[in-house]
Amino acid sequence: MFRSLIKRNEFLVAVTIIALVLYIGFRNPVFYTYSNIFDLLRSGTVVGIFAMGVLVVIVSGGIDVSFTAIAVFALYSTVKFMVTYAPDAPIWMAFVMASLIGLGLGMINAFFISKFHLPTLIVTLGTLSMFHGFLLFAIGNQIIRNKLPPSLTAFARTALVSIQMDRGIANLHPAIFITIVVAIFTWLLLDYTMLGRGIYALGGAREAAERAGFNINHIQYFIYGFVGLLSGIAGMTFGALNRQANPQDIVGTELNVIAAVVLGGATLTGGRGTVIGTILGVTLVVIANNSLILIGIPPVWQRVVIGIIILIGTGLPAIQERRAGKAMVGLADM
């Protein structure tokens, strides 16, 4: 019953995406141009990386809202460090450093969650405020834009594919590969490793997972460390794509990412969620965010439409579940 419901949920999202794509494309063929598609991929790059981390936490039955603060913390600290001490460092160094900072901050979350058994929402709400506050008062609060390290500027200008268009050039940035690699890694992790199954087990029935012999502490350190690491990568990618490190960026978008993951079928109670579903959820949110202008919806309407999409995306499954639940009454004594 539930299995098919989840399937239907992913199916529903896929159908919505197809309908939206067909409709927007019908109304405005610009949608199908390379430059638009490349833009969409570019917008999905960062959200996609975040979403994989959030998926893993949600599957484990937790939630992390601090990932945006971790991302901007990692990005800004790394860029500031490079500008000051190592302006000639290669781009991979930037990514390694941002990932390690992210990992470290994620471990702080893990420490509070596993050592004191505190609710994950509250811990990460607290660390969101702490990380961002610390970044702003202790590390810096000015945008770094003009004297970026050359390796970063060069990375921002790379193009995987360049296609000459009527007006200008459509560039596909290779950062999308980061997202693809992260997604494949997360899929393999969740579906083909015991650690991944442990994450599902933890989200499904914590006590049973303990009895089965899973080390819950290790799993939690992994989960929050993993989210931190991905957030570091996502933050760095964001900075590289936008050619700036702004300490006020990214924070505030956490709920968008969570909404994308939940639209993709992950449930906040834990134990459920897939990489495929998450990709669909991200796709829907990105298209809605970027393409409405193509069908003549002015940008001021953007938030309204996003809100309605979230409500429909969560409302339809809720109604379905209610109907199913009504039919199930009476099986209570099974």
Binding site: R197, Y200, G204, A205, A208, G213, G270, G271
Partner: peptide, 18 residues
């Protein structure tokens, strides 16, 4: 001590794999 969100097969085999 079963996992409601996992399949029948996995519930049976998980402990052994662990």
């Amino acid at each position: 001590s079963l996992f409601p969100n996992l399949t029948v097969a996995e519930n049976i085999a998980l402990n052994e794999e662990l």
